[in-house]
Design a protein around this nucleic acid. Sequence first.
DNA 1: CGCATAGTTGACTACGCTCAACCCTGGTGG
DNA 2: CCACCAGGGTTGAGCGTAGTCAACTATGCG
Lengths: 203, 203
Amino acid sequence: MDLVTLESLPDELRHGITVRELQPGQLLFQQGDLATAFFVIASGRIKLLHTVDRQDTLTLRTAGAGETLADIALFTEVYPNTAMAEIRSRVIVYPKQVLAEALHQHPALSEDFMRRLVQKIQSFQQQLGLRHVRKAQDRVLRYLHYQVQYADRGIQFDRPLKDIAAELGLTPETLSRALARLEREGHISRQNQVIMLHNSTAA
Amino acid sequence: MDLVTLESLPDELRHGITVRELQPGQLLFQQGDLATAFFVIASGRIKLLHTVDRQDTLTLRTAGAGETLADIALFTEVYPNTAMAEIRSRVIVYPKQVLAEALHQHPALSEDFMRRLVQKIQSFQQQLGLRHVRKAQDRVLRYLHYQVQYADRGIQFDRPLKDIAAELGLTPETLSRALARLEREGHISRQNQVIMLHNSTAA
DNA sequence: CGCATAGTTGACTACGCTCAACCCTGGTGG
DNA sequence: CCACCAGGGTTGAGCGTAGTCAACTATGCG
């Protein structure tokens, strides 16, 4: 039983479902808004932003199709961060209470949900690990190694480098320089939008 | 129903329980070990470390009495990080399968567990937000503001500054300087081990 | 054919890290 | 009871690296 492929979901959940379409740049919810729903991304790409002191904003993570948003909202009054579509996206909307109820009734659903929470924790741990690497080249190289696990050998960037820079906690300039340097030193090679990783020491 | 106060726990969980005592510096589990159990801290303080590339290690968080460790382990084969006692500590040990089974049977327990997972996610988000603040003084000031929510007005440091520095991703020297500067500029005052926050602009 | 935006490169600045010396405290042993 | 030692904390000097600001190029879209 699984929140994403909508098969074998309990009826009460199916009925609560609505779908929303977002244009690039549009907000799904905003930090501080009353949390009323939980979301699954059907298509597109949505980034989670966290704003501190109503100024300086950081990209927590970017979620694609099949991923969930605002899991946290089930247990908090308000959304702790802001969700913005990077490209045109479609999301499935589950009212919060309906889902909460369903989780209570269906252990298998509950387990799926927990598994997702755990994945998020792991992803945040990974990000913290990344941020701990000060030198931009090393951080980028590690990031590339993470990415290459999903693709194999070649990494295709389907989104602007500046977004990736934000996710890495770097400025676009620094990322650009880091990539140039990695290429010059033979760790990677770039052709068009594709980056190839050479099997370097940093495993 | 709650994993920490051992009351009203299902019997099958109670029976699986054992208790372990750790000396300062001793490891509860190590990154890469086969994950067999889930833990609740009865007393003491335990820090979670993450090691990258079998060298440089970062402190993910520090957990005290009443907090849980290795929630993630329920869903992964191995422990994704290392737990080390900072001081003498006692932990309650739940075998992984027993807990997993109990979660399946008892929705209330499941909910408690999910709530804890969500709290961890939030705490990681907070940390990522912290790390995003480059200037040491600002980062420390924000950290102090977070801490002061739990204590009120005065923050008592019961552990070495160097540990706090590690948690903040700073060197002890930088932390020391940052605190000195914050004091000089009137944002905080220090007497003995206690830090008082002056209500400054940065809320 | 411009215009907007992304990416790159350069020069300069700022700030945290490193290394090193010093102070201060608490604990130990003569 | 005091001398010593170890560790944490503080302070100083110098270095490295990411950020900032700015100019220039390349690319895609109206």
